[in-house]
Amino acid sequence: MFSSMALMRWPQQSLARAPRLQYFRQVVARQPRRSLHLAPPFLLDDYIPLYQLLSSVEASKKRSRAYAHLSSCNLCPRLCGVNRYETTGVFYWSGRQKPCIQGHNGSGSVFFSGCNLRCTFCQNHDITHQRNGFDLTPEQLAEWYIKLQDTGGVHNINLITPEHVAPQVALSILAARDMGLTLPIVYNTSAFDSLDSLELMDGLVDIYLPDFKVWSKNASRRLLKADDYAAVARESIREMHRQVGDLCFTGDGIAKRGLLVRHLVMPGKEAEAEEIMGFLADHVSKDVFVNIMEQYRPAAHVGKPKKERQRRPPQVTEPGGVQHEVVTDSETQDVRYAEINRPVTEQEVSGVRKAAERVGLWRFNDPPKHDGFAI
Rank of each mutant, 00 (worst) to 15 (best):
residue 116 N to M: 07
residue 116 N to L: 06
residue 117 L to D: 04
residue 117 L to E: 04
residue 117 L to Q: 04
residue 117 L to Y: 04
residue 117 L to W: 02
residue 118 R to T: 03
residue 119 C to S: 10
residue 121 F to C: 14
residue 122 C to W: 06
residue 122 C to Q: 08
residue 127 I to Y: 00
residue 129 H to P: 01
residue 129 H to N: 09
residue 129 H to C: 02
residue 130 Q to H: 14
residue 130 Q to W: 06
residue 132 N to Y: 10
residue 132 N to V: 14
residue 133 G to P: 08
residue 135 D to F: 09
residue 136 L to A: 13
residue 136 L to V: 15
residue 138 P to N: 14
residue 138 P to Q: 15
residue 140 Q to G: 15
residue 141 L to V: 13
residue 143 E to L: 10
residue 146 I to L: 15
residue 148 L to R: 04
residue 148 L to G: 00
residue 151 T to N: 11
residue 152 G to D: 13
residue 152 G to H: 14
residue 152 G to V: 12
residue 153 G to C: 08
residue 153 G to E: 09
residue 153 G to A: 09
residue 154 V to I: 14
residue 156 N to C: 01
residue 157 I to Q: 13
residue 157 I to S: 11
residue 157 I to E: 10
residue 158 N to R: 05
residue 158 N to Q: 07
residue 158 N to A: 09
residue 159 L to P: 07
residue 160 I to Q: 06
residue 163 E to V: 13
residue 164 H to M: 12
residue 167 P to Q: 05
residue 168 Q to A: 12
residue 169 V to T: 13
residue 170 A to F: 03
residue 171 L to F: 05
residue 172 S to E: 07
residue 173 I to G: 07
residue 173 I to Q: 07
residue 173 I to Y: 02
residue 174 L to Q: 07
residue 175 A to Q: 12
residue 177 R to L: 06
residue 177 R to P: 03
residue 177 R to V: 10
residue 178 D to F: 05
residue 179 M to G: 02
residue 181 L to W: 02
residue 182 T to R: 13
residue 183 L to A: 11
residue 184 P to I: 02
residue 184 P to E: 02
residue 184 P to D: 04
residue 185 I to W: 01
residue 186 V to P: 03
residue 186 V to T: 13
residue 188 N to C: 09
residue 189 T to F: 02
residue 190 S to T: 13
residue 192 F to S: 00
residue 193 D to H: 06
residue 193 D to A: 10
residue 194 S to Y: 00
residue 194 S to Q: 01
residue 195 L to Y: 03
residue 196 D to M: 07
residue 197 S to C: 12
residue 198 L to M: 06
residue 200 L to F: 06
residue 200 L to I: 12
residue 201 M to P: 06
residue 204 L to P: 00
residue 204 L to R: 02
residue 205 V to Y: 07
residue 209 L to H: 05
residue 211 D to V: 02
residue 213 K to H: 13
residue 213 K to E: 14
residue 216 S to N: 09
residue 218 N to Y: 05
residue 221 R to T: 14
residue 223 L to N: 03
residue 224 L to S: 07
residue 224 L to Y: 05
residue 227 D to I: 04
residue 228 D to I: 03
residue 228 D to V: 05
residue 230 A to D: 08
residue 230 A to R: 05
residue 231 A to Q: 14
residue 233 A to H: 00
residue 234 R to E: 15
residue 235 E to M: 01
residue 237 I to A: 06
residue 237 I to Q: 07
residue 238 R to I: 11
residue 241 H to N: 15
residue 243 Q to L: 10
residue 245 G to C: 01
residue 247 L to R: 00
